[in-house]
Amino acid sequence: MLDQDRTLEERAVTVLLSEYDALKAEQRARIGIRDQLLYAVLTAAAAIAAVTATAARLELLLVLPLAGIVLGWTHLHNDHMITEIGRYVRTRLGPRLHALVDDATDIPMFEWETDRGSDPRRRSRTWLQLAVTLAAFCVPPLAALIIVWAAGPHTPAVLAVSVLEAAALTVLAGQITRYADLAGARQVTR
């Protein structure tokens, strides 16, 4: 009976480690996508500005807020899922695995998942990352809107689109700030 229990535990450990590997692979892929989105929004801003200058039609700048919103939302979603995977590993997967192997070892499970949050510079990094993210996804689109508005007068359609884009940018900036985990950055725990 003990051998059968041990075999079941070993299989459970194997399954949990496979889940961990799959989650970390997804996390790595999402990190790659998230990081590339910063380059994508900067490239989009440069391309849209170049086309606008070449065509001499300021209304074309209204494409930039749309690009910033779409790319920014995708960045935010990936960043949120990266965080959720880490949280799941720390709070659910790690404890389940540790409970199975607790008798065999006293080694902490997935220590990196919890230890990295204890860095005393985490707070400043979190604030700087928030500033970079807002600067990349919200500032260029907002600048485009200001340029369009300053150039006035505009048709009602241009004004309506620009106001909707400004509202969507405000929502995006709020969500980016909300998900930045500024409260968690204040507490340094070990």
Rank of each mutant, 00 (worst) to 15 (best):
residue 67 A to T: 07
residue 89 V to M: 14
residue 52 T to K: 14
residue 56 A to V: 05
residue 27 Q to T: 02
residue 72 G to K: 10
residue 34 R to Q: 15
residue 49 A to N: 11
residue 76 L to P: 00
residue 91 T to G: 13
residue 73 W to L: 06
residue 70 V to T: 14
residue 71 L to C: 08
residue 65 P to E: 03
residue 21 D to R: 11
residue 27 Q to M: 07
residue 75 H to R: 08
residue 31 I to M: 06
residue 62 L to I: 05
residue 84 E to F: 07
residue 74 T to M: 05
residue 49 A to E: 14
residue 30 R to T: 00
residue 71 L to H: 08
residue 75 H to I: 10
residue 53 A to M: 14
residue 57 R to I: 00
residue 87 R to C: 07
residue 25 A to R: 14
residue 20 Y to N: 10
residue 84 E to T: 13
residue 65 P to N: 05
residue 24 K to G: 01
residue 71 L to D: 05
residue 35 D to L: 11
residue 25 A to Y: 03
residue 85 I to H: 06
residue 71 L to P: 08
residue 30 R to L: 15
residue 88 Y to Q: 09
residue 92 R to G: 12
residue 33 I to V: 08
residue 70 V to W: 05
residue 87 R to S: 13
residue 39 Y to V: 06
residue 92 R to E: 11
residue 22 A to P: 04
residue 67 A to E: 07
residue 41 V to M: 11
residue 63 V to Y: 01
residue 44 A to Q: 04
residue 38 L to V: 10
residue 53 A to E: 06
residue 66 L to M: 11
residue 44 A to T: 04
residue 88 Y to P: 11
residue 79 D to F: 02
residue 62 L to V: 05
residue 61 L to D: 00
residue 57 R to H: 06
residue 66 L to D: 04
residue 88 Y to S: 06
residue 35 D to S: 09
residue 37 L to S: 01
residue 22 A to I: 02
residue 61 L to N: 03
residue 61 L to I: 01
residue 68 G to H: 04
residue 89 V to D: 08
residue 71 L to I: 09
residue 57 R to F: 03
residue 49 A to H: 12
residue 28 R to E: 04
residue 29 A to V: 14
residue 20 Y to C: 07
residue 26 E to N: 09
residue 82 I to Y: 01
residue 68 G to S: 07
residue 47 A to G: 05
residue 33 I to T: 10
residue 66 L to H: 04
residue 43 T to C: 15
residue 39 Y to C: 11
residue 44 A to D: 02
residue 68 G to C: 10
residue 72 G to T: 02
residue 43 T to Y: 05
residue 72 G to F: 04
residue 43 T to R: 04
residue 47 A to C: 11
residue 25 A to F: 09
residue 24 K to L: 13
residue 45 A to T: 13
residue 33 I to D: 01
residue 41 V to A: 04
residue 78 N to M: 08
residue 59 E to F: 00
residue 34 R to V: 02
residue 79 D to G: 07
residue 69 I to Q: 09
residue 55 A to I: 05
residue 86 G to T: 09
residue 34 R to F: 07
residue 91 T to R: 13
residue 35 D to G: 10
residue 21 D to L: 15
residue 71 L to A: 10
residue 92 R to K: 14
residue 58 L to V: 09
residue 52 T to E: 15
residue 83 T to C: 09
residue 78 N to K: 09
residue 89 V to T: 15
residue 23 L to I: 06
residue 36 Q to N: 12
residue 64 L to V: 00
residue 35 D to E: 13
residue 20 Y to L: 12
residue 65 P to S: 14
residue 61 L to R: 10
residue 30 R to E: 03
residue 80 H to W: 06
residue 78 N to L: 14
residue 79 D to R: 02
residue 30 R to W: 03
residue 57 R to V: 01
residue 70 V to S: 12
residue 60 L to P: 01
residue 82 I to G: 11
residue 48 I to F: 04
residue 81 M to P: 00
residue 51 V to E: 15
residue 40 A to C: 12
residue 75 H to K: 10
residue 46 A to C: 08
residue 61 L to K: 14
residue 85 I to W: 03
residue 52 T to L: 15
residue 89 V to Y: 07
residue 66 L to G: 10
residue 38 L to D: 11
residue 65 P to H: 05
